[in-house]
Design a protein around this nucleic acid. Structure first.
Lengths: 208, 208
DNA sequence: GTCTATATTTCGATAGAC
DNA sequence: GTCTATCGAAATATAGAC
């Protein structure tokens, strides 16, 4: 088991408007503002259907300005991807080469639940643009960043664990995703702390 | 629980090549062949990144031929969407206006599990192109087809059911999705019947 | 039903001034 | 760091012959 972390420390106000980052009062850098606008549009209309023109217009600048901050459209997507990557990677890295037992998986999901609730948008972006991200990885792999989903696949293919348990591990991850993101925002008015507790219970039942 | 239906009746050969439909020996109509090729490409590369040129080339015809069978690229996507729609719609319609109890939801998922396993590709297409499908519905709504996800949202917002149970219902659906689709095909070699049983057990634990 | 050829639009990206 | 202007490529879609 992982040491107990404070549960409600991440109860970010669900009303955090632009960046779901640390609420600082200083104005966001242009680069961050681009990413925030792109994040919203990519979620709403999808990556490929969103044009740089749209992003620029909504931001009140021209397309050319975007290219000062990012080398390409894909570069914007990659920057958003990196926002997520930290979370999942260091969660999975705790597992290391240990056998992925149900108990360890439950601990991992415990963390991920809180991270998902604190950074809904980033996870939503990935859920709704899976194809676009896979295309990214297909070209990119300049080694620098081992893919997250590949690590998931590796863990869930670990032959030391029974098929039944591995399926339940995958299912429990899906359960968390479903509880948080299913059907838009059916639970948007449920406090994060309550949602978190319900889901941790559910994961417990699946991995008992 | 609903009356036991024969479980293994849907154990379709995982090797079914082209259409995952009733294996008939007659050659597929051109229209169906277009849909099959499009389905594969949309899953692999995403809807927007897949061009009509690609579809036509892989089929050995020209782009113009596609336009004889479909009015637009979106029309192809819509045709694929309709393949899914039957499944979900008549599963949800069984619920009607009844209170969506956990037991009823478990029965519904029982059916959906088998349908997902028998039609993996169609569900995978939807999972990986959510944004594209939402864009479809935003323009389309010519009333003729009430949306599936909207119905889900409606059920999961039913105030007669406690928040805890509703979250668990959403989570159990996600669990099924996760168990079947997570990480590409980590469980591709697991027999459908076994996977189905494991997932039904898991759903049972979530909705007990 | 499928072809050739082309129209039309939009997009991502670049060059260079300020 | 943002602008104007533009390029080249690729996409969807159409017209009309066979």
């Amino acid at each position: 088991m992982v040491a107990q972390r404070p549960r409600s420390a991440v109860a970010v106000p669900a009303t955090a408007k632009s960046a779901e980052k640390d609420n600082r009062l200083e104005p966001l850098s242009t680069r961050e503002r681009i990413l925030d606008v792109a994040l919203d549009l990519f979620i709403e209309n999808g990556f490929h259907k969103t044009s740089l023109r749209e992003i620029a217009e909504q931001l009140g600048v021209t397309k050319a300005a975007l290219y000062y901050h990012f080398a390409s459209k894909e570069d914007i997507l990659m920057a958003l991807h990196l926002r997520l990557h930290e979370f999942g990677t260091d969660a999975l890295s705790q597992l290391g080469d240990q056998e992925p037992t149900k108990a360890r998986w439950a601990d991992l999901l415990d963390q991920i639940i809180d991270q998902m609730l604190a950074h809904r948008k980033i996870f939503l972006l990935h859920e709704r643009n899976q194809a676009a991200f896979e295309a990214l990885h297909r070209e990119d792999h300049d080694a620098s960043h081992e893919d997250l989903q590949a690590n998931f696949r590796r863990v869930l293919s670990d032959e030391r664990v029974s098929v039944r348990d591995r399926v339940r591990m995958a299912a429990s991850f899906g359960a968390v995703m479903g509880g948080i993101f299913m059907s838009g925002d059916a639970f948007g008015d449920v406090p994060s702390s309550e949602l978190s507790e319900i889901l941790r219970d559910a994961v417990g039942d699946l991995l008992r």
